[in-house]
Amino acid sequence: MTRSLIVTGREVSRISRGKPQQVAFVFFAAIALGAFVLAGSGGHAGTGAIAAAGPGRLAASISNLLLVASSLAGILVAALSFSLDETGGMAALVRSCGLGRREYILGKFAGLAIAPAVLIGAATIVVLAIAERGGGFAFLVPLLALVLATAAVYAAWGSYFGTFSRSTLAAAGVSLAFWFATLFLYEALGWAIFPVLPYRAAKPALALFLAANPAEALRLGAIFLGDRGATLGPEFYYWQIFFRSPMGVAVGLAILAAHIVVPLSLTAAASRRRA
């Protein structure tokens, strides 16, 4: 455990010093700031997922952009980092120090997931400094929780693709394809199918739709959290009631955990196969 934390510390330190990461920090901070300020500008609710947590249409758009960016940053940073360590020999050298695969993977993943947290946390401090102009904690807290969960889930999948792929270029390619498919293609497919399904079939189909894709789980989770499930249809409202119950919260957290644990287990298996 202690040695996992040493790996975590190294990742956070390395990421926070890299030039590309510093540019990303500024990018995130700018988006967070924009989202926060615009959230306080009033207007009616938008259609985006985070509209559930914020009042403005423009704010919702910016919040969605933040979600898209955090998932992209999470998956790419993790895929590149794991791939470079595997192909460059650093992973092997670290293992020769007696560090187990799981310790190494967990430590590295935690660092890669914490780095966006540090970044967004820093952005939040800036935002809160001008809190009187913004939408306040009510808007920011769910948004930040969602962004951090997205970054963590996608970093877990990035860890797998980085370890599984034979080259860094392949790791980046597979990660981008996964990101695009889960964020955009999957949703388009879902919205094409749901209207034609009978109500009885739609309910279980929606549960599967929700649970199988991390992006949808997070998007719809935000909608349910904002009590807007009814606007999407009766089957959405049904699951909203469930997910807002104590049991639903537990199931929701379990789904989120599964989206992290499954790819990390696959990462450990891929690392063993590489040896």
Partner: peptide
């Protein structure tokens, strides 16, 4: 045990000391 590989891609943004 200590292992010295023949070569290593050193991680970016990391000094020799770090």
């Amino acid at each position: 045990l200590a292992y010295v590989p023949d070569r290593l891609e050193f991680p970016s943004s990391t000094s020799a000391l770090d």
